[in-house]
Write a protein that binds this DNA or RNA. Structure first.
Lengths: 181, 181
DNA sequence: TCCTGCTATGCAACTCGTTGCATAGCAACC
DNA sequence: GGTTGCTATGCAACGAGTTGCATAGCAGGA
């Protein structure tokens, strides 16, 4: 139920079309919330019908026209109300953990699982490197940030620490698998 | 798409009824995969129809009868196939991160958000304490574990490190909010 | 020239997950 | 005696999320 609110935050940071929002969700916002373009277009329609956002048709040359959305007052109010309501507990779903515990029932597949874990480790290490590069680029001087930037930075630091921890844990998993195999 | 497989892992570790599975999902398995009893009952039916698991009616005294499920050969095969297939990338959804970034657009609500973050911090610290207690109880001597136990332990260590990291990050968030407010 | 890929939006069908409700007997507490 | 809570299973309805497909023009490479 938070996709609407993630979109509102993104549109308040900067107006954009459905397509642009989808690519933002593949980048920065995707760090903590994923969405496909189909979901985004559907929700944008509902939000426009509810008066949360307004759309403006923008003609373009050499590429299709687009509809640029901006957050409207009712949307801002809805976001504020949501921000102030208590948060539901998060549901964690870690598929790799299911697989690791399942490996006990497929000893012959341990080597394959280790290769999988290694692939994940590489992906998380690459993401960590991207986050760190983004941090150097966007926050070169962390002491002179305005409120919005300081909050973006602390969320990014969360992503960095998550990836760091995950890489270390996957190393632990690999060592454990090696001891068993 | 992994609820079936999480259930298979759990039934291979120990047969059980839908109700028992639901409480396991509230405990150990819930660390990395959540499910409600309605979901579990529905999936159990489908799995039984597909021949992945078998059921046995068990009469009880002083409480309702139950259906105890066990993993069958086709289910084990399905699990093995799933374990050996490549893993899809995980989708992360961190609602609190959306809220933190949204706080830039509701300065008056910063104090309320800080209280929320503090509540989350307490919940994660409590979970960390529970994990550590469980580790001391279930793995007092980590050097003499069989394969299944070693894998359960490394998954638990992942949970512990995740909670540790989260508590530290929430402290960082609180410090950032205090600097702004 | 054909194929791939990017911008840009959308429908239809399906599966997954959540919420509310229902039944039913027993035990414990106030 | 009434309320709450636990074991045990389930239906129905809804909302969220995924997958496959479709359109359409332009740019760039093999």
């Amino acid at each position: 139920m938070a996709l609407e609110h993630a979109i509102l935050v993104s549109l308040l940071e900067k107006p954009g079309s459905g397509y642009e929002l989808a690519s933002r969700f593949d980048r920065s916002i995707g760090r903590f919330w994923t969405a496909t373009h189909q979901q985004i277009y559907r929700v944008l329609k509902r939000m426009e019908a509810d008066g949360w956002i307004t759309a403006e048709e923008v003609a373009q040359e050499g590429r299709p026209d687009k509809r640029v959305y901006s957050a409207a007052a009712p949307g801002r109010d809805a976001l504020t109300a949501w921000l102030r309501a208590p948060v539901e507990p998060e549901t964690v779903r870690h598929e790799l953990a299911v697989r690791i515990r399942g490996a006990a029932f497929d000893p012959a597949g341990t080597a394959g699982l280790a290769a999988e874990v290694e692939r994940h480790r590489a992906a998380h290490a690459a993401l960590l490197a991207r986050y760190l590069a983004g941090e150097r680029r966007d926050f070169p001087d962390p002491d002179v940030l305005d409120a919005a930037q300081a909050l973006q930075h602390v969320v990014l630091r969360g992503g960095i620490e998550y990836e760091r921890m995950t890489v270390a844990w996957l190393d632990d998993v690999l060592a454990t698998l090696r001891r068993l195999g």
